[in-house]
Design a protein around this nucleic acid. Structure first.
Lengths: 173, 173
DNA sequence: CACATATCAGCGTAACTGACATCG
DNA sequence: CCGATGTCAGTTACGCTGATATGT
């Protein structure tokens, strides 16, 4: 006993039960995750847009601050952004004077990317924005609930992405 | 006291701390959501691919079964698939004989979409696949934990998508 | 020679927008 | 004339895959 309107009671006429999500989809974990992530992304993008930034910019700057200057390859591995896509991000950040890209004298293949003072100030602003975004996103939850959510998601993620080894040389994380 | 390697201890040399995600990103709820959703999507796609299906196909078929025959516009609202994109999905499903699209005699703008017997059988198969997928996705969690996760996500979603009104005529859900 | 780095060019999918003809 | 419906064309972002030139 559950879902079975079968082919019976139709709604060919149109305007009635309309616009309701079917039960089987409503509580599908994978769907819930996707939809919620979508809203989270929207919030994040809108929020960061207030500083003309996107998630990638924040990821790179935060990584630079926590680990210090690094090559683009290292940045790629740590942020989870593909080497190929990272180029554009680095270009943009460098173009705005937030980071600097200089050839590594020790290894001439590399670019050493480092933050500028302006980049550091900018990152502080982004940190605030990000904090606001998370708060907005998690608004309906109490603090313990938020912690629980983070724990549950972390466990799912750790289980499905066990410090992924990478065949090609890129990292899909 | 928390995160502050500042510009100090660098890693210009390359191979050392490499490949670790910065603390500020690691537990960011929005990031966790996005990443987890990404893995969930991957699982769903892989799983459904075993029956040459995608999420949209499942959504449409499940909706048809629960509400009976409906116009494409109604399907769009209930599934959250845009009217424009729904066309292709309906084409595919119809092409495989899983649904039927017939002009509505009562309202000549409409197509009445309904499932065929073959579509019903197919949906049963998809239902099994989907169940397996969810189980795979939630593997690391106990049943109460799974329920909790669903509850938390549902609350987030309900809060941020309060039966969204739609300006244009499409629904962004 | 095998490997890493930076870069570029391109693909597939998904969400989304706009326009348009048809019809109520 | 307004609004809904089905359809098509096109945009943007993102994840991901080569391939290539250079250097270790």
């Amino acid at each position: 006993m559950s879902t079975d309107t079968g082919t019976g009671t139709a709604d060919t006429t149109g305007t009635r039960d309309d616009r309701a999500t079917p039960a089987r989809l409503r509580s599908l974990p994978s769907r819930l995750l996707t939809k919620t992530a979508m809203h989270a992304d929207r919030l994040a993008n809108q929020g960061l847009a207030r500083a003309d930034a996107r998630k990638w910019h924040y990821a790179v700057l935060a990584t630079l601050q926590e680990f210090g200057p690094a090559s683009q390859a290292a940045l790629s591995r740590r942020t989870g952004i593909y080497r190929s896509d990272l180029v554009a991000v680095v270009n943009e950040l460098a173009g705005r004077g937030l980071i600097e890209r200089a050839p590594d004298p020790a290894d001439r293949r590399r670019n050493v990317v480092s933050m500028t003072p302006r980049g550091r100030r900018y990152l502080r602003r982004l940190d605030e924005l990000v904090a606001t975004i998370q708060d907005d996103l998690l608004a309906p939850l109490t603090q313990p609930e938020r912690d629980q959510l983070v724990r549950l998601l972390t466990r799912l993620l750790d289980h499905h992405a066990p410090t992924a080894p990478h065949p090609t040389g890129d990292q899909p994380a």
